[in-house]
Design a protein around this nucleic acid. Structure first.
Lengths: 237, 237
DNA sequence: GCATATTTGTCCGTATGTATA
DNA sequence: CTATACATACGGACAAATATG
């Protein structure tokens, strides 16, 4: 049997009552999706849990039609899966999914850094910010912040490719990665040993050595992939 | 003023009446999206056209709620755009979009062929089929078929990367490309001069020369991009 | 700028089909 | 097999925003 979100007595966190009236030029469905996305990535809805239309709809006081629109958004982000006439479930990622995610990440991220031929200057600013934010958060032992800083680092690397679609793609892949990290015992802490390597990659990029940065990044991603795959396989038993 | 789909007197092609009863394990919204996607890629709904909920809903005899679910699907495929309180429109791609599409295509497709280090044998079968289908269709002057064969060729190249997510990504990018081709006077005919180059790339892959195939493909994509960008700019006037 | 008509956004009630205990 | 719970799809309603004259 699967875990069921409907069994939770209450739906925690801020609701929607604050600004129902379509204020920020964002639709109700989008705000709904934001709330649900937060619940999923923080692990409140565990992978495999079913999200009942009725239970969530009544808890958040939105109609089923609106809720379904929010579901669609998250399904497309691959955080939820939809089974016909059965409902939507929090995605359960397999070991094949993890391998696939890293295969595509390597293609896109390595291409992005490889293209760097000369010191990029200001274009490197977001990467620098992410590296510093990560090391600062680690010093303060704020693992939550460190985790998001690390994701920002990878987003910043991808942005070097200069493609909006590549950025959006990576955003989706990294959202899926959050589901992966969650099988680790201490999800946020997982990134800590990689902070130093972030800095190495940044230095190579500062020097305009794209191919060098690519080698560092490829090893980095290989190591992280194997660490996660090992954790996945040991969890299966 | 924009073109409006509602002004069309009838909605051509097969409707939904044939199998309303949820036969093929696919929801009504998905089948609806299939129909609309076909209309868009074949150019019946031109870029910029608004898709009226009422007009299409009554024409296809589906409720607004169901139609909106179908719209959601196509919006996330980037074929439609949604403007709050204004409706959905067929996406209008800008020159920046075209450049962006090719930027990401080069990253993914070039990585896919570059990884080929030895003669791939059976893994190359879909590519071979696509090349032959294209040349056969050209001989029969069936430009429609030639166009789809060409898209299959690029899908087949991408599949060499061995990533389901890369395949899905490329499927989406190529769907967007159909919107681009449509600004060309003779959209299907556009691909004809590239058939010979498809065969060249195939030969390099057969020989196990991934880097050689990558060079050919990079030039290929550069040429196609510039040809389309020129057509786009001249169309703007 | 104003008044009107049209269209979308949201929600509800219900009938039907489907999956599961 | 039956019963129950749920998703699917529909049609109607009203509010809110937009387009039109």
């Amino acid at each position: 049997m699967r875990a069921d979100a409907a069994s939770h007595p209450v739906f925690p966190g801020p609701g929607l009552e604050s600004d129902r009236a379509l204020l920020g030029r964002t639709s109700m469905a989008e705000r709904l999706a934001d709330i649900l996305r937060a619940r999923i990535t923080e692990g409140y809805f565990e992978p495999g849990a079913r999200l009942s239309e009725k239970a969530i709809g009544t808890a958040l006081k939105v109609s089923r039609n609106t809720l379904r629109e929010a579901f669609r958004l998250l399904i497309h982000e691959r955080l939820l899966v939809h089974e016909l006439n059965r409902g939507v479930f929090v995605r359960v990622l397999t070991v094949e999914d993890v391998a696939d995610l890293y295969r595509l990440r390597k293609i896109v991220q390595c291409a992005a850094v490889r293209a760097v031929a000369a010191p990029p200057g200001d274009r490197l600013r977001p990467t620098e910010v992410a590296v510093e934010a990560g090391m600062d958060a680690a010093k303060r032992q704020n693992w939550q912040e460190m985790g998001t800083a690390n994701l920002r680092f990878h987003e910043a690397l991808t942005a070097l490719a200069g493609s909006a679609r590549a950025d959006e793609l990576m955003g989706g892949l990294l959202a899926e990665m959050r589901l992966v990290f969650h099988v680790m015992g201490d999800p946020e802490r997982f990134h800590e040993p990689y902070l130093a390597r972030n800095k190495e990659i940044l230095e190579a990029l500062r020097a305009g050595d794209g191919p060098g940065a690519e080698r560092l990044l490829a090893d980095y991603l290989d190591d992280a992939e194997h660490q996660l795959l090992d954790a996945y396989r040991s969890k299966d038993r």
